[in-house]
Amino acid sequence: MAPGKNEPVRVETIVVPDPGPGEAVVKVQACGVCHTDLHYKQGGINDDFPFLLGHEAAGVVESVGPDVTDVAPGDFVILNWRAVCGKCRACRRGRPWYCFDTHNATQKMTLADGTELSAALGIGAFAEKTLVAAGQCTKVDPSVSPAVAGLLGCGVMAGIGAALNTGEVGRGDTVAVIGCGGVGDAAVVGSRLAGAARIIAVDIDDRKLETARAMGATHTVNSRDTDPVAAVRELTGGFGADVVIEAVGRPETYHQAFYARDLAGTVVLVGVPTPEMKLELPLLDVFGRGGALKSSWYGDCLPSRDFPMLVDLHQQGRIDLGAFVTETIGLDDVEKAFARMHEGDVLRSVVVL
């Protein structure tokens, strides 16, 4: 639980209500420590403290409320933070991954004294149990490791989806990925899965670049020492990449992505900016380069379609989701995991309960 802005997280007793209509209680088995959790702790998303952090989670449905039919007690599920409504204008047009009315549980979890908790991304899974909307539960093959499956709940899905769904990387394409943390490395994996011919990983940390190469990058660029736009152009015959995926969420790296793409190429923003950030680009350059500038919401995924598919690919050995798990930890170690995240020496710490 994060009690206030930039305050250390701590373990508290929480009260989880019985599920009401459309809700489910899930016994959490594993939950990744995501940078978004750190954003919440730092007040970078909103100031609705205290927060119950954790959202990259997998576990077993313990109980469901009235009228819930899609999941049942005993189902092994990955939790997602975009439970589609099926009724909004996006859903009615057959584009549920853009759902404009995603929802969470109606009831609130609380501290023992009755203080209401704000669940991170409507999940709050750094806990033995959590209350979610039933639509946030996606059934997958129960033989997969919970520590691996949970990562599809946010960062890994966001990166793979940025390549496959938003960027629509195709066979033979050239791809540049700027920022090689968990999301960026997942974009590398997604680009490789799509059949990209050349995948250029860009970061300022050689350790992260080594990991990106192990994930499938064909070339690496340390942008601390080298102009990344020039480097990407040199590696693509002077043209720039067909798809550039920006996994940092900063104006400087977005500029790099914009100018590192080919004419009529695609830029995908999947890195999460903070509210005060501003972007300035010459409008003539936006017009003159054509192509597409896209933002990727959760990798534009549809959990019911994409989570089972990616688990199956992992089980077949076609992608290695386990490579994203650097360490497994206990609930008491989340604050240390945030510190390690700052130091850049973990891809994902995963809380195992």
Score class of each variant (00 low, 15 high):
residue 328 T to C: 02
residue 99 C to A: 13
residue 46 N to K: 07
residue 79 L to I: 04
residue 335 E to M: 03
residue 258 F to M: 06
residue 110 T to Y: 03
residue 274 T to E: 13
residue 9 V to N: 09
residue 240 G to Y: 10
residue 311 V to Y: 04
residue 281 L to Y: 09
residue 170 G to P: 05
residue 162 A to L: 09
residue 152 L to K: 04
residue 46 N to G: 08
residue 136 Q to L: 05
residue 327 E to N: 00
residue 170 G to L: 15
residue 155 G to R: 05
residue 85 C to I: 10
residue 47 D to V: 09
residue 98 Y to P: 02
residue 189 V to H: 09
residue 275 P to S: 15
residue 42 Q to Y: 06
residue 336 K to G: 00
residue 312 D to A: 15
residue 198 R to T: 14
residue 323 A to Y: 01
residue 292 A to W: 07
residue 77 V to N: 13
residue 87 K to S: 14
residue 85 C to K: 09
residue 293 L to S: 00
residue 93 R to W: 06
residue 310 L to S: 09
residue 39 H to A: 14
residue 264 A to F: 01
residue 87 K to R: 11
residue 149 A to V: 04
residue 341 M to R: 03
residue 246 E to R: 01
residue 61 V to R: 15
residue 159 G to E: 09
residue 193 L to W: 08
residue 40 Y to G: 08
residue 160 I to W: 04
residue 318 R to V: 12
residue 111 L to I: 13
residue 135 G to Q: 05
residue 31 C to G: 10
residue 60 V to H: 14
residue 251 P to F: 09
residue 306 D to M: 11
residue 226 T to A: 11
residue 230 A to H: 00
residue 147 A to K: 07
residue 52 L to F: 00
residue 281 L to D: 11
residue 107 Q to G: 12
residue 249 G to A: 13
residue 336 K to F: 00
residue 271 G to H: 01
residue 348 R to P: 03
residue 156 V to C: 05
residue 279 L to V: 14
residue 189 V to A: 15
residue 242 D to F: 08
residue 108 K to Y: 06
residue 343 E to T: 02
residue 223 S to L: 12
residue 20 G to Y: 06
residue 17 P to Y: 15
residue 8 P to K: 00
residue 41 K to M: 15
residue 53 L to P: 10
residue 99 C to H: 12
residue 63 S to N: 14
residue 284 L to G: 14
residue 41 K to N: 14
residue 289 R to G: 04
residue 45 I to K: 09
residue 229 V to Y: 05
residue 75 D to G: 12
residue 152 L to W: 04
residue 318 R to A: 11
residue 286 V to C: 10
residue 277 M to L: 13
residue 42 Q to K: 06
residue 99 C to T: 07
residue 11 V to T: 11
